[in-house]
Write a protein that binds this DNA or RNA. Structure first.
Length: 444
RNA sequence: GGCCACGUGGCGGAGUGGUGACGCAGCGGUCUGCAAAACCGUUUACCCCGGUUCAAUUCCGGGCGUGGCCUCCA
């Protein structure tokens, strides 16, 4: 089965051939740990987890390395820590540490609840500062970076193909630059590799004074540290194309004699909520954490996979409901299956640039064995209990009511039996009479 | 303003130069005391205007519309 993936750099679907089939390497930009992750953040986590699983299926589980980083050095974190401290007598650096630890822990729980496998490595920026300093040195040595006033900047003009990923000619970007140009910059587009820290900001000693790395640097550095100079796939949200990934390319290629950073660049589309862009001011900011409080993670995951990863997607409550219904029906069919298999149509859909909607369509036509196999490959464990509502219900009470109703039905006291049924329905319990007796489910 | 996506039936959502994916909803039926669930069957589509072609929803050009990036952002 030929895997084809869309590459942002060439803007084409290309056949995927790993550099080394015994070690397929993929890196995905992870979260900045300063606040709960929102459902937009869940999309790349889920999409690239599916890709991870597909690669493991094709090349063998032990032959795929998946790295997703944790950004725990960032000015948003620092700003939040200052807010949290307020005027209390606390060490801000300590608040930063607590904030990142706590947020990191919640993130790990949340993505696991979404059915994602743990990546092979989850490196953190704070653990790679020496490597970052070393990379800055290489860039200075290569004549691509310069130090000025405690900063080190990447000199974009020195890299002839800068802008190749986002397809932005350099002169146009400078003309359109809206930022105030810092006096120490040689050009408006030059970006920061290192910047000074004050007493209230985490900092590390370096040849350019106590400071901290610029955001883009950590990914370049951690890719090098965990997987080497050139990897097979680099993924992330489409909004990261510029400037983040563009700058990663500049840094990594600059520090590695022009050797390319990634052979495939993959970007997932944006997510809207009920037709609107998610934003705190509109009040439609939905976090993974709060969603998991009343929806099974499987439902959130399935909902995400109903749209192709590159398409913009609209997250809606109606869609969640539909996802739940489909999954519930499928789990009933797949749960008793013991010998699973992967259908050809299903696999070729997935192999066509991760066409999950097509793959799902194939599952609708599949045998129970293929359905179970497909669900499993997509990261679902078809165990009906996993779909149980997070709402607490008194199952003993429900069983008793069902017995009472069936007794009434037997006695042909339909007025009473319907009364019980309606009463349960009012509580959100939907009864289902089947040939093997009565079951129930939570009505959403 | 620059760059880039996208526009498919009531809804979600693939795909293709020529026999109207798939799911949900709707409708008809089986089942049921009646419903629900389940199962079987089934109606509805390709933004507008040109062009290429024997043939365009699919390719090309233009228009309109929506969204993204250009500043932190998945």
């Amino acid at each position: 089965m030929d895997l084809r993936l869309y590459d942002t750099l060439t803007k084409q679907k290309q056949p995927f051939r790993p550099l080394d089939p015994s070690n397929v390497r993929m890196y995905v930009c992870g979260p900045t740990v300063y606040d709960y992750a929102h459902i937009g953040n869940a999309r790349p986590a889920i999409v690239f987890d599916v890709l991870f699983r597909l690669l493991r299926h094709i090349y063998g589980a032990e032959h795929v390395t998946y790295v997703r980083n944790i950004t725990d050095i960032d000015d948003k974190i620092n700003a939040r820590a200052l807010e949290l401290r307020g005027d209390r007598d606390l060490d801000v650096l300590e608040v930063v540490r607590e904030l990142t630890e706590r947020t990191y822990a919640v993130y790990q729980e949340d993505v696991a609840a979404l059915g994602n496998l743990p990546p092979t490595f989850m490196p953190r920026a704070t653990e790679h500062v020496p490597q970052m300093i070393a990379m800055i040195r290489s860039l200075i040595d290569a004549g691509l970076a310069y130090a000025a006033e405690g900063h080190v900047l990447f000199e974009v003009a020195k890299k002839a193909d800068y802008g190749k990923l986002s397809r932005r000619p350099l002169d146009e970007m400078i003309a359109g630059a809206r930022v105030d140009v810092a006096p120490y910059k040689r050009s408006a587009m030059d970006f920061v590799l290192w910047k000074p820290s004050d007493a209230n900001t985490p900092g590390w000693d370096s040849p350019w004074g106590r400071g901290r790395p610029g955001w883009h640097l950590e990914c370049s550095s951690m890719i090098e540290a965990t997987m080497g100079e050139t990897i097979d796939i680099h993924g992330g949200g489409i909004d990261l194309v510029f400037p983040h990934h563009e700058n990663e390319i500049a840094q990594s290629e600059g520090a590695h004699h022009g050797h390319s950073l990634a052979r495939f660049w993959m970007h997932n589309g944006f997510l809207n909520v009920e037709g609107e862009k998610m934003s705190k001011s509109i009040g439609n900011f939905v976090t993974i954490h709060e969603l998991l409080a009343d929806w099974p993670g499987d439902v959130l995951r399935f909902n995400m996979l109903r749209a192709h990863y590159r398409q913009p997607m609209d997250w809606t409550l109606a869609g969640m409901k539909e996802s739940w219904d489909t999954l519930a029906r499928w789990y009933d069919v797949a749960e008793p299956v013991t010998a699973t298999r992967i259908g050809d149509g299903f696999l070729s859909a997935l192999s066509d640039d991760l066409n999950t909607p097509q793959a799902i369509a194939e599952l609708h036509k599949a045998s129970p064995e293929e359905l179970a196999g497909g669900l499993s490959l997509l990261g679902f464990n078809p165990i009906s209990e996993r779909l149980a509502s997070k709402k607490s219900v008194d199952t003993v009470e429900i069983s008793r009511a069902i017995e009472a109703r069936n007794a009434a039905r037997k006695a042909k006291d339909f007025k009473e039996s319907d009364r019980i049924r309606d009463e349960l329905l009012a509580q959100g319990i939907q009864l289902k009479d089947g040939p093997d007796g009565t079951t129930w489910e939570i009505k959403r």
